[in-house]
Design a protein around this nucleic acid. Structure first.
Lengths: 194, 194
DNA sequence: TTGTTTCTTGATTGACGGGTCAATAAAGAT
DNA sequence: ATCTTTATTGACCCGTCAATCAAGAAACAA
């Protein structure tokens, strides 16, 4: 049965299974055995390819982050004016792929992991820096030096809405969630003009 | 050595030790043994008084929530006009006692617990309902029917800033954090007037 | 004194989970 | 044909941890 060149296939399957398992179980405590079973292999093979549980999680996190980055790039490529740039970043953050319950649950899991794992903390800070940079890039032509603080507030609200969604305390419709952030953007732009 | 009437003393010591241990260790995974050792007793005694690990956590969460409620009541008692009522709620949420790293870490822990424990989820929803109610009560005289959605945005930003603080990605000064939310309040009030 | 209740812990149990290892099997290389 | 590399797993080890239990020690009641 052993086919050659299995490594990338197995790694991708494990990353996919990790995200699915977190979402399916709802819990943030998933075992390597559960992930491996969902991916159709033994837990020993998961260890063979990744070395440990934490590295499996980090690989899943990198996958989510790279997907997110690609979506942001795609959305930005269609934006012409600064205002639509900012909206593109917000919409990408709340895109269906990022907003699926299992991905939100994965984010919560990674938040927890970032408390103890320097690698996870580093990845998270990269995400924050990128988000800030993307928002500032669109905001600076509109509000100048006030861009960083406005970006901070928008980012905080995105995180807060994410959290509530993950806890099942958010609004039922995800579209309304985007509207909340866009509303904040409107307020900030209106205040900066005066 | 056994003194009589130890139960309330032991329970309070365990609640205090639970919060301290979460903050001291930084991690969200604390064991009953660590909590009991910090409280100066054996893990068996902790089980004797609380029955299980989850109930220890829930007791600590209830303590934090009741402290928070008392602070909100105290701050509201000194507010006269609606605007200062809203600010009082915001300031109480970011009071030094709620904003200490160990309390923030405890909140993250309870978020995680709420994913699996119905009791924890119930407590969290009570917190959310109270926060919404407190904010709406102050906002309604100012903005009328728009109070609920504005309260939702303010609450989301509070949560988001909490999250960043817990992850060490927030601003160094907690005072600036309050300013962010007050800034949002100003924007919302200004927009509602027009 | 003789129970009885309250407090307290060391020792133990049982389960779970991450990680390792030897062994097996296929595919290619020499 | 033999050797090496890659793939794969079942079985096992070891540590951790929640929860239990039996027993001891102090205060109190009879």
């Amino acid at each position: 049965m052993p086919k050659l060149g299995m490594e990338p296939i197995r790694r991708a399957a494990l990353v996919k299974a990790t995200i699915e398992e977190i979402g399916a179980q709802g819990s943030l405590d998933v075992t390597v055995g559960q992930i491996a079973r969902r991916a159709g292999m033994s837990s020993a093979l998961a260890h063979h390819y990744f070395g440990g549980k934490e590295q499996i999680f980090l690989a899943a996190m990198r996958h989510i982050l790279s997907t997110y980055s690609a979506e942001v790039r795609g959305a930005l490529s269609m934006a012409t004016d600064p205002r639509s740039r900012v909206e593109a970043v917000i919409r990408a953050g709340f895109s269906t792929s990022n907003f699926r319950p299992e991905v939100v649950a994965a984010w919560l899991n990674f938040y927890v992991l970032a408390q103890t794992s320097p690698d996870a903390a580093r990845l998270l800070s990269i995400y924050y820096a990128r988000l800030r940079s993307n928002l500032c890039h669109g905001l600076r032509p509109l509000v100048g030096d006030r861009a960083p603080e406005i970006a901070g507030r928008i980012g905080a609200m995105i995180d807060g809405l994410y959290l509530r969604q993950g806890l099942g305390q958010g609004l039922p419709s995800g579209e309304g969630t985007i509207g909340q952030v866009v509303h904040l953007l409107d307020l900030e732009l209106g205040a900066a003009q005066s």
